[in-house]
Amino acid sequence: MADSATAPALSVRGLTKHFGERTAYRDITFDVGQGEVFGLLGPNGAGKTTTVRTLGTLLRPSSGTAVVAGVPLGSDDAGVEIRRRIAIMPEAPGLYLRQTVRDNLSFFADLYDIDKPGPHIDRALEAVKLTDRANDMCGSLSKGLRQRVALARALLPRPVVLFLDEPTSGLDPAAARDVHELIDDLRRSGVTVVLTTHRLTEAERLCDRVAILNTTLRTIGRPDELRDRLFSKALVVKLVEPLAHPEAVFSPLAGVESWGGSGPCEYSLVVANTKAVAPSLVRALVSAGADVLSMAERSHSLEDVYMELVGDAPKEERQ
């Protein structure tokens, strides 16, 4: 068992899962470093939850290998050891609705063999801001509060790797922000977080790296890396009046790969390096007598990356 401080928290090699004839995901390979917040993005049915369930030892992989928190997936004993080191918050909270919040957490503390669980439960409740609801029946809580209880439950064992499946699903913006702050805190405390989400802004804000999955792994990297990989950099210039001879201004500039009009008084220039081109572009415009209203780097969001990779494409054939 790999247990070095530098070993990845998760190491997945060629993992594949079939349900009979259907393929949930195929040939997935990636590593997640210790203390990293890793996003798993993809459309419904892309295999995100099945991947998490496999890594959480709930499902057996059809082929491939994985090492989770230093323990290779395999036997029942390895499964128990992995489950000792990780926690999973499933998309549905799965609480005992006829029991109180504290009873729910107390039960799970016992399942995780936590000695003197009281302080652990208090800390988990405090982390999700539910201390004052500890004695409420879970059935009386709103969907958002139930989600927070489920999150508190996942925090109880102080996991090495925490899998969060759509953690902000059903939460209002304020509650979602609390969860984001919590994930930031977890990152700071060295917990590895694997986050599946449909909220691309959330992934962009929280994740060190993301993987886009649609049965196969489409891409993996830092959000800015993915943007750079998929989209060329561009500068957008807005002027008071259109240029009489724009080709005379833009074509001679070093570093400009192409250019075009993107509005009546707006031009878009594809460049290799925005910082290198921007000063000479301003000088050229001023020399040409143009009045510059604004100049900005065109930004692409993770959503653009996602849409580019899986947005309009039909879901991969699952055979």
């Binding site: 029942d76 499933p90 799965g94 399942l111 995780y112």
Partner: peptide
């Protein structure tokens, strides 16, 4: 049916 089985199975319980 209640959805409580999955969270339990994610713990070390055999």
């Amino acid at each position: 049916l209640q959805g409580t089985l999955e969270p339990v199975l994610t713990t070390p319980v055999t």
